[in-house]
Design a protein around this nucleic acid. Structure first.
Length: 197
DNA sequence: CCTATGATCATCT
DNA sequence: GATGATCATAGGA
C-alpha cells in the first residue's frame, strides 16, 4: 500500500504516465465514505499541442486554469450538462497536461457505488466510462482543483498481477482532426471494466 | 446487432 | 445562443 506522491504526477511524459496509472488503485473518501477501484482505462491529454485538449494552443480560461497548475491535482468538470469527468493534472506549472480516468474496477465500497449509481447488481456499466467513474466514486465539480494526494482523493500503488496493456485511439474527440488518431488511450485487456474494446 | 435521440448546464462566442 | 473528453434507452435491421 504505497500512496503515490505528487511528484509522480509532475513528469513531462503525460502519455507514459497515463500508461503507468493502469493497475493503480484510485481511492476517494467523500462525506466520510471510502470507495476505491483499480484503474483499468485512461487517456492522455497533452496540453497546448493537442487539439483534443481543452487547453490546446495555450487556451487559458477559468475552466482550464487548473490544468496549468503543477501536477497532482484533480480537474473535474461537467460535460453535456450531466456527467462529471475526472482528470488528474500532470506535468509542471504552466503545462496544461492531464490524464482522463475512463474506467475502474470497483474494489472497496461496492455497495456504496451501487447506491450512487442506483443499481442493484455489479456489472461493467457500474464504473466503465468517465461519467460513470465519477458518479460511482462520488466525485463532482465541487472537488475541482483539490489534491489527488490528499484526504479526499488519493492513489496508491497496489500493483497486483501485471496488466495486459492495449494502446489505441481516444474516444469522443473526432473534432480534433489529426490528433484524434493518436494512440493515447490505454486499457487493461484482462479487465472487463473498460468502456470500449 | 445497430443507429438515433433526449437529458441538461457551465462555459465559451 | 451554441456546444460538448457522455450515457441510457428506444426502436429498427
Amino acid at each position: 500500500m504505497k500512496k503515490i506522491p505528487a511528484s509522480f504526477f509532475q513528469s513531462h511524459q503525460v502519455v507514459q504516465l497515463a500508461e503507468e496509472l493502469l493497475g493503480c488503485e484510485l481511492c476517494t473518501t467523500i462525506n466520510g465514505v471510502l470507495t476505491t477501484g483499480i484503474i483499468t482505462e485512461t487517456e492522455a491529454y497533452a496540453g497546448k499541442g493537442d487539439k483534443a485538449c481543452h487547453a490546446h494552443m495555450g487556451r487559458f480560461t477559468k475552466r482550464t486554469s487548473v490544468m496549468y497548475e503543477s501536477g497532482g491535482i484533480a480537474y473535474i468538470y461537467l460535460c453535456y450538462g450531466i456527467h462529471h469527468l475526472f482528470n488528474i493534472v500532470t506535468n509542471t506549472k504552466g503545462n496544461a497536461d492531464a490524464v482522463l480516468i475512463r474506467a475502474i474496477e470497483p474494489k472497496t465500497g461496492i455497495d456504496i457505488m451501487l447506491s450512487r449509481r442506483k443499481k442493484s447488481k455489479l456489472d461493467k456499466t457500474l464504473s466503465s466510462g468517465p461519467g460513470n467513474v465519477s458518479k460511482a466514486l462520488g466525485l463532482d465539480k465541487s472537488l475541482n482543483g483539490i489534491s489527488v494526494c490528499g484526504e479526499k482523493i488519493w492513489l496508491q500503488n497496489t500493483q497486483k498481477e501485471p496488466v495486459n496493456i492495449v494502446k489505441t485511439t481516444r474516444i469522443g474527440v473526432d473534432y480534433a482532426g489529426e490528433d484524434a488518431k493518436l494512440p493515447w488511450r490505454f486499457y487493461d485487456a484482462n479487465s472487463s471494466f473498460v468502456s470500449v474494446k
